[in-house]
């Protein structure tokens, strides 16, 4: 009997508590906005924060409250989810320009000069804090893969010592942008195919000494561009995404190969898939995918 009393007593207390709670949940029931619940149902549930809210439920609550709020903010779900949300709210979905992450460095292990052999903790943050990492270039990709670790969608990888983005799966959530200690990753429109893959503000001599793929600020691209889209400032070329027509002329004249034309990279990848391995001169062999 001695064991029965404690068991009965504990169970009884638990039972009374459960009964009171069950009753209280009826009395204190809060009316939940069913629109918000429905919207949260169609959201992917990645809680990546790409929409600007802390999680999917925050965005759903905002949409349910304010029907004029743009319903295309979910970068993971994209247009498909925007349409579903619009269906629930009874508004029209506006297709938002698909964004992708763009890495502004092409300092591959062949091109970039090494100052030392880095054998420390294998994160960019750690490498950056020790004399700015192994590479001579103080602007470029450290290649330890902080962005790769931050990516929830397996869309960014270190190839040949530099980060490459898979544009098909990238959701532009911005996790890699925040992870990069060198601030080399930005979000850009997926329509733009030609990029400057360099972030060095060093002059021509210093930049070339550090990396063969560096932008030397020679202004050949600026003079070639027919659309006034390319300009060189602080020894670094910049392509205005609004004016760029993806013609790729700047990429052809670039003497160092820091300007990358995604169309060529993609073509090379497609041909490789067909069985005729053609690697464009400026894309690294391994990274020859639909990547930038």
């Amino acid at each position: 009997m001695s064991i029965a009393i404690p068991i009965i007593l504990t169970v009884a207390i638990g039972f009374v508590a459960a009964a009171v709670l069950a009753y209280a949940s009826k009395v204190f029931a809060v009316e939940v906005d069913e629109t918000a619940v429905a919207i949260e149902g169609v959201l992917p549930g990645a809680n990546c924060g790409g929409c600007g809210f802390a999680g999917c439920s925050g965005y759903a609550a905002k949409l349910a409250e304010d029907h004029d709020f743009p319903c295309n903010k979910c970068v993971v779900g994209g247009a498909a989810v925007a349409e579903k949300i619009a269906g629930i709210l009874g508004v029209n979905a506006e297709a938002e320009d698909k964004q992708v992450a763009v890495v502004m460095c092409n300092g591959t292990s062949q091109a970039a000069k090494l100052l030392m052999e880095y054998k420390g903790i294998n994160t960019c943050k750690a490498a950056n804090s020790i004399f700015g990492g192994a590479k001579a270039c103080t602007y470029g990709c450290l290649g330890c893969g902080d962005c790769e670790a931050a990516c929830q969608f397996d869309s960014i990888h270190i190839r040949d010592g530099v980060a490459w983005v898979n544009r098909d799966t990238c959701t532009a959530c911005g996790a890699c942008v925040r992870a990069c200690p060198r601030h080399l990753i930005r979000l850009g429109s997926a329509k733009n195919l030609v990029f400057v893959r360099c972030h060095s503000n060093d002059g021509a001599r210093d930049a070339m000494q550090a990396c063969k793929n560096a932008c030397i600020g020679c202004k050949k691209c600026e003079n070639t561009c027919k659309f006034d889209a390319v300009h060189v400032e602080n020894n670094l070329s910049y392509i205005d995404p609004a004016k760029c027509k993806n013609c790729g002329m700047c990429e052809k004249v670039c003497p160092t190969g820091n300007i990358i034309n995604m169309r060529l990279v993609k073509k090379a990848y497609d041909e490789k898939q067909k069985g005729t391995p053609v690697v464009p001169p400026k894309a690294p062999a391994e990274g020859a995918q639909a990547q930038a």
Binding site: T10, V20, L21, V30
Partner: peptide, 15 residues
């Protein structure tokens, strides 16, 4: 057990 129960109750009341 009792404290957990009370906190639950207060949480419902507050919500």
């Amino acid at each position: 057990l009792v404290i957990a129960f009370m906190v639950q109750l207060i949480e419902m009341f507050m919500k």
